[in-house]
Design a protein around this nucleic acid. Structure first.
Lengths: 114, 114
DNA sequence: ACAACACATAAGCCATGGCTTATGTGTTGC
DNA sequence: GCAACACATAAGCCATGGCTTATGTGTTGT
């Protein structure tokens, strides 16, 4: 069922990993976590051309990590929290190998849900 | 301090993201979580040539996600749990944006440590 | 010692990806 | 309407990456 949902959304963890593999894209994403920003702003922060930034944003958008909204002649981009979910899910699948801290977290969750 | 350690280890989250970006590499990694395996075994499981598998393993090894050990004429590969830590750290940094479930986990941790 | 096995590495090929410049699409203000 | 701004998209270039075949390095067994 979760699988079906993922397929319908068209996003397995594949797109997310792919999107976050690039350092510039991660930097842009991190920058957006500090608040909504226009393409112009991001272009100013990083030493990238405007098309480069737009292309990175398109990739992040395709991975569901980011959303956009028009405001006047600017396009504001913001982080889409749920976009990280596939990554969290993937990692959670290997929680057996995590460090003590995360292991403790999982144990807590189990106890909570019981 | 954590930063210094990362630099000394020579591994920011960069190598890990890079290594996990490839589907074949993730598949190999996932396969290894089910237990130690030789290159020959992995080559048999996936439809990849032996050199391809070796190269993927070398990349995973470089990212600290996997370790190797000689046993006779085979080289056994196993998952290195701590290798996922940079990824967990990176995601944890954006925990503010996580879904309710993870948010609940974090709140639990905070209460626990207090 | 030699053949067979298991693996790593080298070299080359081809697809992909990220960047650039150039151009198209909206939107604002005069 | 028109110029200026903000952004998206197209086209092309070049580096990178993943795969292949071919070859080198160890290890086992006879």
């Amino acid at each position: 069922m979760a699988y079906v949902l993922r397929v319908l959304q068209g996003s397995t963890e594949d797109t997310v990993f792919q999107a976050l593999a690039d350092p510039s894209r991660r930097a842009i994403f991190e920058s957006l976590t500090r608040g909504e920003a226009a393409v112009k702003d991001l272009t100013a922060r990083f030493e990238l051309s405007q098309p480069a930034v737009s292309q990175h944003l398109a990739t992040l958008r395709g991975a569901g990590l980011v959303e956009s909204r028009r405001e006047g002649r600017c396009v504001m981009y913001r982080v889409e929290p749920r976009g990280l979910q596939p990554l969290v899910d993937w990692i959670t699948h290997y929680r057996a190998f995590w460090t003590d801290r995360v292991g403790r977290l999982e144990r807590l969750l189990t106890e909570l849900e019981r």
